[in-house]
Write a protein that binds this DNA or RNA. Structure first.
Lengths: 102, 102
DNA sequence: TATTTGTTTCGTATTTTTACGAAATGAATA
DNA sequence: TATTCATTTCGTAAAAATACGAAACAAATA
């Protein structure tokens, strides 16, 4: 049963999802941080020191970015090393490029 | 008095704002529509016919896009012709490019 | 002046987001 | 086995986003 009219394309929904992940300054900060620091990976605690929010709140933002596919966490107890997911990062980059290129 | 520590850059806050404006499929649809149709301007009613939402809801989304600076409305009673604000559009494009280029 | 028009604003309800501190987790260590 | 550690999950509260229909708007027209 697929009689409902489709209003949005898959790309439109996907782009909105990526945009939502970046719709908060904390999450933009995190991605900037991962892009610019060291081996492009880091720990939650490193970022917590540079942010005016509780660690639990930071954790929720990391969860959002994970859900969107922008990052992944490599468990290394008791640390978790966060890295950019370059495959999805590249996809998002390409989708935004396409979106903005009139 | 500016003793508070600054956590986010202006660019981070700006990018998050642009991303927020694009964080909803309806608003992505609207921008796609404006980019791809005719003289790149159109009426609220034109879009309403292609969307599964009330006209008042569409109006709120247009307001959001206006607030973000992506569009502007040229009043032409009783119509309002919406157009892309190319200056801000270009700025957003550039900011996303810079953000994604590792 | 009353009506019609496309659109917005208002009042309201529901859902989602953001935030915090306390408690839980799970591996390493004392 | 109890403790330590960085981090997450839970419970909760407050704020923001999304949605709708009814009413308001302002210019054009009958």
């Amino acid at each position: 049963m697929h009689s409902e009219k489709k209003f949005f394309t898959t790309d439109q929904i996907k782009l909105a999802g990526y945009a939502k992940a970046l719709s908060n300054p904390v999450r933009v900060f995190i991605m900037d941080y991962l892009v610019n620091n060291m081996d492009k990976c880091c720990y939650s605690g490193d970022m917590a020191e540079n942010l005016p929010i509780a660690r639990s709140t930071l954790s929720e933002h990391l969860k959002e970015l994970k859900k969107a596919g922008f990052i992944q966490g490599e468990i290394n107890p008791p640390y978790i090393k966060y890295c950019i997911n370059y495959e999805n990062w590249a996809e998002a980059k390409q989708m935004f490029e396409k979106f903005f290129n009139i």
